[in-house]
Every structure is written in structure tokens, then in C-alpha cells.
Amino acid sequence: MKYKKELFYRLIFNILAFASLFFLIGITIILFKEGLPIFKQLPFFKFVTGEYWYPTYDPPDFGILPLILGSIWVTLGALFICVPLGVGSALFLNELATNRQRSILKPLIEILAGIPSIVYGFFGMVIVAPFLQKIFNLPVGLTAFTGSLILGIMATPTVCSIAEDALSFVPKTFREASYAVGANRWQTLTKVVIPAGGSGISTAIILGMSRAIGETMTVLMVCGGAAVIPSSIFQPVRTLTATIAAEMGEAVMGDSHYHALFAIGLVLFMITLVFNIIAEIISRRFRIKLGLGR
């Protein structure tokens, strides 16, 4: 009787586990199924390097290079903000904050990491864009620069939180050994703690980057949305994610525009996959290096 019940539960968990895995595999399959047909019309290479995105013209142009560049510009810009601020804050929390400060600031930053992206987008649109337009004397306030700024602030708590977790894994003995040979706190930080926690910090940066490149609503609202190759950071750009969000509503199911948007989804999927795999490899090495094998 007891044995039968055991088997029953085991079966239930098996089924539920495979149901969720089925969904997760399903998303990959659907992306390929709906995205690949566009490559019958034009080769993958042309799709990625084409300079013009005019999906509704006749004949349409499906070149996503401007969109890829838009994503890259905005993400790189965001990195200039979220890396120094995020890593700096993590180092502060880990090294300088008293226990009391840390026990307040760390949860606070984690809570702030949960601010929805739409709120950032809204804030960027109503406050930051008009402000930047005024001080830089620009024709429009919704530019790649505005997007980078907002995305950077948005990714900062994420980077900080992950980097701080990584730093807290650096064994105390490393620091003690450094103090014992006469190093002061700053030297210990730069010569011992940062190198030891370095791969953990890079994981945090890569994950922050992955978040920035996949972010949709913020860039859709504040980057301006012009699908042309940007020549300066003060021009409107359009990212991969924003294109899907803006155009999917009007694409007709089954036509080439629809498939092209799924192909963009596929490209995004691949980009984040590569980022995540790199982060995974680095963090695994990090754990092994510090003797935290898991």
C-alpha cells in the first residue's frame, strides 16, 4: 500500500516536471518553426547584415542591421552606467558598510531591482527626455543616449545584487592573509578581493547586459524608434526588442513580416543564450577557484 502511494507520487512529479520541460522546449521549437521560413526568401547572412528595415514596403526590405546596432549601442551605453555604479555599490556594501548599513541597504537595492520596466520607460519619457532635450539642445529628447541612461539605471540594482553575492563568497581567510602581510584595506580590496571575486563580478556584468539587451518596454518608449543605422548617440534608434513589440500588432499571421519578427525573436534568443552560457562557464570556474564546487 505504502509502496503504491510512493509510486503514485513519483509518477505525478514525473509528469509535472516533464510538462514544464515540455513547455520550455516548446518555446525553442516555436521560435524556429515560425522564424525559419523567412530564410527561404532571403539568406540568414543578408537578414543580419541588411541595412534597411522596411517591412511594409513593396517589395519589403528585411535587414536587421540597424536594429542590431540599435540594441548594441543602447546596451553598451547602459554598461557605462550600470557597471561602475553597480560594482561600486557592491564593493561598498561588501567592504565598507557596517553590518547595520548592509542589512538595510542590501534588501533595499533588491527591492528596487523589482521596479517594473514600464515605470522606467514612463519616467524616461515624461521627465528625462524633455530634460535632456533642453540641456543638450536636441531636436528630440527620445534618443539612444536617453535609452542608455535609463537602461543603465535600471540594470544597476541587478548588477549590484549579483556582484555582492559573488563578493560575499570570497573567503575571509583571503582578507586576513592580506592584512597579515601588511596591506591596508584598499590594497586588500584591489589586489585580493577583486581578483578573487573577479569572475563573479563579470558574471554579474554579463547578466546585467543580458537584461539590458532583452529589455523591451523601456527602449520602446524612450529610444525614439527610428529603424535607421545611428550615426550619433543623440539620434533616435530602434532595438530588436522594440521592433517586435511595435510591429507584431500589425503583422498578418503567416506573411513574411510575421516570420521576420519571429526571426528577430530567434536572434534575441541566441544572443541571450550565448551571454548566459558565458556567465554560467565563468561562474562555474569561479566556484571551483574558491573551492565552492557544486
Binding site: 518555446i27 523591451t216 507584431m248
Partner: peptide, 8 residues
């Protein structure tokens, strides 16, 4: 880590 728009 897959962007939410892809889930959309």
C-alpha cells in the same frame, strides 16, 4: 534569461 518579449 530569455527576453520577455520572446515569451510574448
Amino acid at each position: 534569461g530569455v527576453p520577455s518579449i520572446v515569451f510574448g
